[in-house]
C-alpha cells in the first residue's frame, strides 16, 4: 500500500494536472522571491541560503533514509567532506569557485561510494551504528590533521570568488546573488533526486525499503541498490556541503560531526520522510527555530533536544506525512 503511495510526492495529491503542479509552482515562486519578502518577515537572506543548503543535504539523505529505508546517521561526513574539499581547493589550489564545487562534490561523493561499501555489509540498527562510526572517523581526521585542515579551529583563509562569463561577472560576494547561486544548485539537486525517484532505479529503492526478501526472490541484489542509494545520497549531501563552505567562507569540524548528522535526520523526519518536499520543509522549520533559539538563550540545545523528543513521540510521520494521511482519508 504505502509502496506506491509514497513514491508519489506529497505535492501531487490533486487530480488535474494543474492541481498537481500547483504546489510545486507555489514552492518555486516562493523560493525565487525570497529576497523580496524575507526582510518583511524579519529574516535575512543568508538564513534563506542556509535553509536551502540544509534542505538539499536532507533531501539527499532522504533518498537513502526515506525512500530506500537505509538508516544513515553519518551523512554529515559527506556534507563536511564536500565543504572541506571546496575550502581546501580554494585555499591551496585554485581560486575558481565552480572548480572548487566540482572537487568538493567529487570528494564527498567518492567517500560515500567507498564507505558505502563498508556500511552495506550489515543492515538495520547495525547499519546505523556503522554509518555513525564511519562518519566520526572523518571528524577525527579533520580535527587531528592540523596542518591541512586547521584542526579544531576549522579551515579559514579562503573565500568564494566571483565567476566571470566573458564580459559579465557574477558577483558572489553579494548576499542576494549568492542566494540565487545556491538556489540554482538546490534546483539541480532537486531535479536529480526527482529524476532518480521517478526512474526504475527509484522504484527499486522503494522496493528495497518495503520488502527486501521479495527483491531477493526476484534475483536482485539488495546490497547493491542500498550501495547505489548511499552513493547518490552522499553525493547530493556533498553538493550541499560545498555550498555551505562557500556561504560561510569557513569550514569547521562541526560540519562533519555526528550531531549534524542527527540534525539532517530530524529534518527529514520533521518534514516527512516519505515525501519529496518533506526535507526542505523540515529544514525551513529546523534552521529558523535553531537560529531563533540560539539568539535568545545559551541553552538552546535543550530546546532542540526537546524538539527531537516531541517530533518522535507526536509527529513520527512529519508534517507532510500528516497532510498526506489526512488527504487520503
Amino acid at each position: 500500500m504505502s509502496g506506491t503511495e509514497s513514491t508519489v510526492p506529497a505535492a501531487s495529491f490533486g487530480a488535474t494536472p494543474i492541481m498537481r503542479l500547483l504546489p510545486s509552482l507555489i514552492i518555486w515562486s516562493l523560493l525565487l522571491s525570497v529576497p523580496f519578502w524575507m526582510p518583511l518577515v524579519g529574516g535575512y537572506t543568508a538564513l534563506a541560503s542556509r535553509v536551502l543548503i540544509f534542505g538539499l543535504a536532507a533531501m539527499g539523505l532522504n533518498l537513502l533514509l526515506g525512500f530506500t529505508g537505509g538508516l544513515s546517521f553519518g551523512h554529515a561526513a559527506y556534507f563536511g567532506l564536500g565543504a572541506y574539499g571546496t575550502g581546501l581547493m580554494l585555499k591551496f589550489v585554485s581560486g575558481s569557485t565552480p572548480l572548487a564545487i566540482v572537487v568538493g562534490v567529487l570528494v564527498g561523493g567518492m567517500a560515500a561510494t567507498v564507505f558505502g561499501l563498508l556500511t552495506i555489509r550489515r543492515r538495520g540498527i547495525y547499519f546505523a551504528m556503522i554509518t555513525i562510526a564511519v562518519g566520526q572517523m572523518f571528524y577525527f581526521i579533520a580535527v587531528r590533521w592540523n596542518s591541512l585542515t586547521g584542526g579544531e579551529d576549522g579551515l579559514t583563509g579562503f573565500s568564494r570568488t566571483n565567476i566571470g562569463f566573458g564580459q559579465a561577472v557574477l558577483n558572489l560576494h553579494h548576499t542576494i546573488t549568492f542566494y540565487y547561486f545556491t538556489l540554482f544548485f538546490f534546483a539541480i539537486g532537486c531535479a536529480v533526486v526527482w529524476r532518480v525517484l521517478h526512474s526504475p532505479l527509484g522504484h527499486t529503492f522503494v522496493a528495497v525499503r518495503e520488502n527486501q526478501r521479495r527483491l531477493r526472490f526476484l534475483g536482485l541484489s539488495v546490497g547493491f541498490y542500498i550501495w547505489i542509494a548511499f552513493a547518490l545520497s552522499g553525493t547530493v549531501a556533498a553538493l550541499a556541503g560545498t555550498l555551505y563552505a562557500l556561504l560561510n567562507n569557513f569550514t569547521s569540524p562541526q560540519d562533519l560531526n555526528w550531531l549534524l548528522s542527527g540534525d539532517f535526520v530530524i529534518i527529514c523526519v520533521l518534514g516527512g520522510m516519505r515525501t519529496f518536499w518533506g526535507p526542505p520543509l523540515g529544514a525551513t522549520i529546523y534552521v529558523v527555530v535553531q537560529d531563533y533559539l540560539s539568539s535568545i538563550t545559551v541553552n538552546w540545545m535543550a530546546f532542540i533536544g526537546a524538539l527531537f523528543v516531541v517530533v518522535v513521540l507526536f509527529f513520527p510521520f512529519g508534517l507532510l506525512g500528516l497532510l498526506q494521511r489526512r488527504s487520503s482519508q
Binding site: F73, G262, V265, I266, G305, L307, F308, V309, V311, V312
Partner: peptide, 11 residues
Amino acid sequence: SLLLTFGLAMI
C-alpha cells in the same frame, strides 16, 4: 529510538 535518545542526550 535513535532520534529520541539523541534529543535526550542534548537535554
